[in-house]
Design a protein around this nucleic acid. Sequence first.
DNA 1: TGTACATCAGTGAACGCGCGTTCACTGATGTAC
DNA 2: TGTACATCAGTGAACGCGCGTTCACTGATGTAC
Lengths: 207, 207
Amino acid sequence: MPVTSRPYHHGDLRTALLDAGLALVREGGADALALREVTRSVGVSPNAAYRHFADLRTLRFAVAGIVQERLAQTMQRRRDDECRSSDRAEASVQRLRGVGLGYIEFAIAEPGWYELAILTHDDGENGAVTTDGTVPPPFAMLLAALDGMVEDGALTAERRAHAEWPCWSSVHGFADIATRGPLKGQPRLMLDALAGVVVDTVIAGLR
Amino acid sequence: MPVTSRPYHHGDLRTALLDAGLALVREGGADALALREVTRSVGVSPNAAYRHFADLRTLRFAVAGIVQERLAQTMQRRRDDECRSSDRAEASVQRLRGVGLGYIEFAIAEPGWYELAILTHDDGENGAVTTDGTVPPPFAMLLAALDGMVEDGALTAERRAHAEWPCWSSVHGFADIATRGPLKGQPRLMLDALAGVVVDTVIAGLR
DNA sequence: TGTACATCAGTGAACGCGCGTTCACTGATGTAC
DNA sequence: TGTACATCAGTGAACGCGCGTTCACTGATGTAC
């Protein structure tokens, strides 16, 4: 079993293709995910991919799924990090803040992955609510945070209505601006500061 | 001069190419702007375009420029429409509202054009401020509206600082959501209502 | 424990697509004398 | 007013590119007897 010569069978090509896809998207954005490019970077013939994925679309969805998981993880971590107050109402506000800042944090840290995440996630069906009634995790976290604020007395039920849209608009909009728009390439410190302003402003407007 | 047989010389091919480009982008978004497709829809050979544009990029910029003008026009009209109050402070707030709603209105009415507008506009240089110090008209209108609010006593100078970012984030984010995201395809009435909620929320948060 | 053989995971070559762009050209226009 | 000729605006064919996908194949693996 010579370790230097590549074996005919790869071993775990499926995972290798997904990893290569992640690397390409990370570097070059959603459009960098081409079937030939992925197989090339693994060092395998183009059609080898068809043993593991029905077509490019399927591979694309699989990579997007991984990326979306990571986005949700970042949001979850940030939400828990930001929640520091012992006051219940205040803590629930901090959680909402964390959800928004986590989304922005991921977008800025990994713009390529972020692009694929929102592209495919938005592509899906009608968007926030997929056909099977499932809500994508990031959006679900926002809803949960807002509901939590009502429960903890930080938001009236009246103001809760439709509150998800100003929140999602601000946060998603800022992520887009910082990633591909006017603020692209600005220093991290500045972006963090502005992200805080954006999130705090919308929260202030909600209450 | 038979009118039925096409003359060898087109007459105004440059304009015809731009019009065809606008039509294609309107229908199919930014990616639909291909040189071959544009010349094909005018009924001319592909390389005829090279008499009027250096390359695809140049044509693309020209079409994007037209679209950006139309976006600015829509914003301007909406700003003036929304400004109804005789109270100066209130009127300046209404103008800000109109600027935001105009941006959203254009995006929803013409998603294809909107896509090209933000793509190429963002592409430019670093974004909001181009290298020659010029600010793109839509963003300039936002800045002017905010400055007007300070002048008319509707916003303190302190709160004016950085106020453009929450505003732009909300409005741009909602346009994106309504155009390609979770709210894509929702009835116009609902989108208009939510646009109002989004814009009013951020304005409330600002003050 | 050894061997036949089905199954699986890859290869290599090719197809057809639409793209942007370039080449050498030709038909039409307009200007100088 | 007529004619030579430069200039301009288009044509037609071709190039090379990278793409997704399909075809017939072959090398490796594992299982049944």
